[in-house]
């Protein structure tokens, strides 16, 4: 009994965000005839919304002429895509071997304590969230943190707090 078939998925868009769908459609125009551009299309959606809302999945599927399920499958496969609004600064803390034995747990704890959040929880001002992630390829900067795509390390608890202070200063 497919009673949910066709029922619209719950929108996660903020009221002001609906207008941004036109922005996304414009960005997708360059991609729709390029074979295999699904990841880039999802990146485009994330650039517009800070995450990939269900409306964007539907739009990407239409524009790239793909099944919606396939676009959703790709979205959920790759860890750098978000399905809920993400912070302006995503702090990716490496949790793998080299960083772990060089003090990564203390760095993650210092960041979370300072922000008053848990992993993947966005601060109320929308500025920060931490993620505990697989190796970032920054082992020479162990323990390493990526702020969006910016490389930071080696860090300890104090330097991690300093990093947050620097980022807050950028916003001031």
């Amino acid at each position: 009994m497919a009673i949910h078939a066709g029922a619209p998925r719950r929108s996660t868009l903020a009221p002001g965000d609906h207008a941004k769908l036109d922005d996304l459609r414009a960005r997708l125009a360059d991609l729709k005839d390029e074979p295999g551009a699904t990841l880039e299309a999802l990146y485009a959606a994330q650039a517009v919304f800070s995450y990939v809302p269900p409306e964007a999945v539907t739009m990407i599927a239409e524009e790239l002429r793909l099944p919606e399920s396939e676009v959703f499958g790709v979205l959920t496969f790759y860890t750098m895509f978000h399905r809920k609004p993400s912070a302006k600064y995503v702090l990716r803390v490496c949790r793998d071997l080299s960083c772990h034995i060089s003090g990564a747990p203390a760095v993650l704890k210092a960041l979370n304590d300072e922000l008053g959040t848990r992993v993947s929880e966005v601060t109320e001002d929308g500025l920060f969230e931490t993620e505990s992630v697989s190796c970032l390829g920054l082992c020479d900067l162990q323990p390493a943190v990526m702020v969006n795509l910016e490389q930071h390390g080696p860090l300890d608890a104090e330097k991690a707090r300093g990093l947050l202070a620097d980022l807050r200063a950028r916003e001031a």
């Binding site: 793998d96 071997l97 080299s98 697989s134 190796c135 390829g137 920054l138 082992c139 020479d140």
Partner: peptide, 11 residues
């Protein structure tokens, strides 16, 4: 796509 923990030569 270098992603092996402990590896950063391609970077």
């Amino acid at each position: 796509d270098e992603s092996e923990p402990g590896t950063y030569v391609n970077r």
